[in-house]
Design a protein around this nucleic acid. Structure first.
Ligand SMILES: [Mn+2]
Ligand SMILES: [Mn+2]
Ligand SMILES: [Zn+2]
Ligand SMILES: [Zn+2]
Lengths: 145, 145
DNA sequence: GTAGGAATTGGAATAATTCTAATTCTTAAT
DNA sequence: ATTAAGAATTAGAATTATTCCAATTCCTAC
């Protein structure tokens, strides 16, 4: 388990290690994404962050998100025509978008399968990113709740 | 090969077979998507359609597209934060988005592989759609142009 | 301590899409 | 043929997510 302090230090360290200035705004945005692992949208993040830092602006949230994404600390996840969501899981993984609840779940993808996907591409095609997403409903299993 | 007339009749038939009124607007929108297999956006479609039918409105293009998509005559394709594109290829397939040229290419996916993808989902997860897309660059092969 | 660049801020601007309410078309019955 | 009723089209306004802008504030290296 990480203490809150330890956690915050780790977080600060991840920013500085990446060559980013650990501004309070970046830290709180990053923290919120790491804590709520629910793939929040920019303005969900804005709302949560504002509770801790009432002076922060939405523009700054967008700026921080862009920085975090560009530096590989956070992943950006897009669904059909919906607002962009942000994910702290850096493993290559897929997403399941529950069309009933709106929830987004991470789906692990074996590297083995990823290379099979890459192999679909004709010669000369070089993919820098693969995006795999499922949409549907996740029924609770009978006997589980 | 299909003559233009034959083509137009087929197209009309596909609309009526689906239970849709074959309005001139729907026909021309559909025709444009079938001809230009380049995954055009709504306003690229609007521009092309307008040449043949100068009075059509953008709202109608959007309405037609929605109808065609809902009735399974055309597929909708979304990339990162870019405008929605439309694809007449009804086979389940993936897309390669060339980040240099902006072009979009269809990638065929064996059903076998699709079921492996489905198998990634935990029990109780039922996917009504799977989206797979690649982003990267497609270098022309040496010796080919 | 200061200068210079980096980051933040509020508000305006943009871009894609959807909504609204009025008009025009089609269709199917009379 | 006429007509009523519903369907589709239209122009323009509205919405939403995101980006841009210019001014201010903040840090950091000297
Ligand atoms: Mn939101
Ligand atoms: Mn466009
Ligand atoms: Zn995720
Ligand atoms: Zn396609």
């Amino acid at each position: 388990m990480h203490s809150p302090t330890e956690n915050r230090d780790t977080l600060t360290k991840r920013l500085t290690d990446t060559g980013l200035r650990p501004t309070p705004q970046r830290e709180v945005v990053f923290k919120v994404i790491l804590e709520k692992r629910t793939h929040p949208t920019a303005d969900e993040i804005f709302a949560m962050v504002k509770a801790q830092m009432p002076t922060i602006s939405l523009a700054t949230v967008y700026n921080c998100l862009e920085t975090l994404v560009q530096n590989g600390l956070v992943r950006q996840v897009n669904f059909d025509r919906a607002p962009t969501r942000y994910c702290p899981n850096l493993h290559e993984h897929a997403h399941f978008h529950d069309e009933v609840t709106g929830e987004v779940h991470d789906i692990e993808v074996p590297v083995e399968l990823l290379s099979q996907l890459r192999a679909l591409l004709p010669a000369g095609y070089d993919a820098s990113a693969i995006e795999l997403s499922f949409r549907g409903k996740a029924s609770p299993l009978p006997g589980h709740n």
